[in-house]
Amino acid sequence: NITYDSTPEDVKTWLQSKGFNPVTVNSLGVLNGAQLFSLNKDELRTVCPEGARVYSQIT
């Protein structure tokens, strides 16, 4: 699982392990844990089509 202390590499690995598509992995894999957790559902949806699914995994 990812935490606020996760590195971008951790986030990328976590996204891949959850089966998100490469677009999602590449879009969000540049963020660290704190940055990812700071995004709300609408912001995640704006960044990638699977944003709502990512949001449900981190809340």
Rank of each mutant, 00 (worst) to 15 (best):
1 N>D: 15
1 N>E: 15
2 I>R: 00
2 I>P: 06
2 I>A: 00
2 I>M: 08
2 I>L: 12
2 I>W: 00
2 I>H: 00
3 T>E: 05
3 T>I: 01
3 T>P: 00
3 T>W: 08
3 T>L: 04
4 Y>A: 14
4 Y>D: 10
4 Y>K: 13
4 Y>N: 07
4 Y>M: 10
4 Y>Q: 15
4 Y>H: 04
4 Y>E: 11
4 Y>G: 07
5 D>P: 01
5 D>V: 10
5 D>Q: 12
6 S>H: 02
6 S>D: 03
6 S>P: 00
6 S>I: 00
6 S>V: 00
6 S>Q: 00
6 S>A: 07
6 S>T: 04
6 S>N: 02
7 T>S: 12
7 T>N: 11
7 T>C: 10
7 T>D: 11
7 T>L: 05
8 P>A: 14
8 P>K: 09
8 P>Q: 13
8 P>M: 06
8 P>W: 02
8 P>E: 07
8 P>V: 12
9 E>D: 14
9 E>P: 06
9 E>H: 15
9 E>L: 12
9 E>M: 07
9 E>R: 10
9 E>I: 05
10 D>Q: 12
10 D>S: 08
10 D>Y: 04
10 D>H: 13
11 V>T: 04
11 V>E: 03
11 V>K: 01
11 V>A: 02
11 V>C: 07
11 V>Q: 02
12 K>H: 07
12 K>Q: 10
12 K>V: 09
12 K>E: 06
12 K>N: 04
12 K>D: 01
12 K>F: 05
12 K>R: 12
13 T>S: 12
13 T>E: 08
13 T>Y: 07
13 T>C: 13
14 W>Y: 08
14 W>G: 03
14 W>D: 05
14 W>E: 04
14 W>Q: 04
14 W>C: 02
15 L>R: 00
15 L>M: 05
15 L>P: 03
15 L>E: 03
15 L>S: 02
15 L>W: 00
16 Q>S: 11
16 Q>L: 13
16 Q>I: 14
16 Q>K: 13
16 Q>A: 13
16 Q>D: 10
17 S>D: 11
17 S>F: 12
17 S>W: 13
17 S>K: 14
17 S>H: 15
17 S>E: 15
17 S>P: 00
18 K>A: 11
18 K>L: 08
18 K>T: 09
18 K>Q: 15
18 K>H: 08
19 G>N: 15
19 G>M: 05
19 G>V: 00
20 F>I: 02
21 N>L: 10
21 N>R: 08
21 N>A: 10
21 N>H: 01
21 N>K: 14
21 N>T: 06
21 N>Y: 11
21 N>W: 02
21 N>P: 04
22 P>T: 13
22 P>E: 15
22 P>G: 15
22 P>N: 10
22 P>Y: 11
22 P>V: 13
22 P>W: 08
22 P>A: 13
22 P>Q: 14
23 V>Q: 09
23 V>H: 15
23 V>R: 10
23 V>M: 13
23 V>D: 14
23 V>K: 12
23 V>I: 14
23 V>C: 09
23 V>Y: 07
24 T>I: 05
24 T>H: 03
24 T>Y: 00
24 T>V: 07
24 T>C: 05
24 T>P: 03
24 T>W: 00
24 T>S: 05
25 V>Y: 03
25 V>S: 06
25 V>Q: 13
26 N>Y: 07
26 N>R: 13
26 N>I: 08
26 N>E: 12
26 N>S: 13
26 N>C: 03
27 S>P: 01
27 S>Q: 12
27 S>G: 09
27 S>H: 06
27 S>A: 13
28 L>D: 03
28 L>N: 12
28 L>F: 04
28 L>H: 02
28 L>K: 00
28 L>T: 02
28 L>W: 00
29 G>S: 08
29 G>A: 06
29 G>V: 00
30 V>S: 14
30 V>N: 15
30 V>P: 09
30 V>I: 10
30 V>Q: 06
30 V>R: 13
30 V>D: 09
31 L>Q: 03
31 L>Y: 15
31 L>N: 04
31 L>I: 04
31 L>W: 04
31 L>G: 03
32 N>S: 15
32 N>E: 04
32 N>H: 08
32 N>F: 04
32 N>D: 14
33 G>D: 04
33 G>M: 02
33 G>I: 00
33 G>W: 03
33 G>T: 00
33 G>V: 01
33 G>A: 07
34 A>G: 09
34 A>Q: 12
34 A>F: 10
34 A>K: 15
35 Q>K: 10
35 Q>T: 09
35 Q>G: 07
35 Q>P: 00
35 Q>I: 02
36 L>I: 07
36 L>C: 01
36 L>N: 01
36 L>F: 05
36 L>K: 03
36 L>Q: 02
36 L>V: 06
36 L>H: 03
36 L>A: 02
37 F>T: 08
37 F>K: 10
37 F>W: 06
37 F>D: 03
37 F>S: 06
38 S>N: 14
38 S>Q: 13
39 L>T: 06
39 L>Y: 13
39 L>P: 01
39 L>N: 04
39 L>Q: 08
39 L>K: 14
39 L>M: 15
39 L>A: 10
40 N>D: 04
41 K>P: 14
41 K>N: 07
41 K>G: 10
41 K>V: 10
41 K>M: 14
41 K>R: 12
41 K>Q: 13
42 D>M: 08
42 D>P: 07
42 D>F: 06
42 D>A: 09
43 E>F: 08
43 E>R: 12
43 E>T: 11
43 E>D: 10
43 E>I: 08
43 E>M: 06
43 E>Q: 10
44 L>D: 05
44 L>C: 06
44 L>M: 15
44 L>W: 07
44 L>N: 02
45 R>Q: 13
45 R>I: 12
46 T>W: 06
46 T>P: 03
46 T>V: 13
46 T>I: 12
46 T>M: 12
46 T>R: 15
46 T>Q: 08
46 T>E: 13
46 T>G: 14
46 T>D: 15
46 T>K: 14
48 C>Y: 05
48 C>T: 12
48 C>F: 03
48 C>W: 03
48 C>I: 06
48 C>V: 06
48 C>P: 01
48 C>S: 09
49 P>S: 12
49 P>A: 12
49 P>K: 07
49 P>M: 08
49 P>R: 07
49 P>T: 07
49 P>I: 04
49 P>W: 05
49 P>G: 09
49 P>E: 14
49 P>Y: 05
50 E>L: 00
50 E>S: 02
51 G>R: 02
51 G>L: 02
51 G>D: 05
51 G>K: 02
51 G>Q: 04
51 G>Y: 05
51 G>I: 01
51 G>P: 06
51 G>N: 02
52 A>C: 09
52 A>N: 06
52 A>I: 05
52 A>H: 14
52 A>E: 15
52 A>L: 13
53 R>N: 07
53 R>K: 14
54 V>W: 01
54 V>M: 03
54 V>T: 03
54 V>L: 05
54 V>I: 07
54 V>Q: 03
55 Y>W: 15
55 Y>K: 06
55 Y>V: 06
55 Y>D: 10
55 Y>Q: 05
55 Y>H: 09
55 Y>S: 08
55 Y>R: 07
56 S>A: 11
56 S>F: 08
56 S>G: 12
56 S>I: 07
56 S>D: 13
56 S>P: 05
56 S>Q: 15
57 Q>V: 13
57 Q>C: 12
58 I>L: 15
58 I>S: 05
58 I>Y: 01
58 I>D: 02
58 I>G: 04
58 I>W: 01
58 I>E: 02
58 I>C: 10
58 I>P: 04
58 I>V: 15
59 T>A: 14
59 T>N: 11
59 T>D: 12
59 T>E: 05
59 T>R: 08
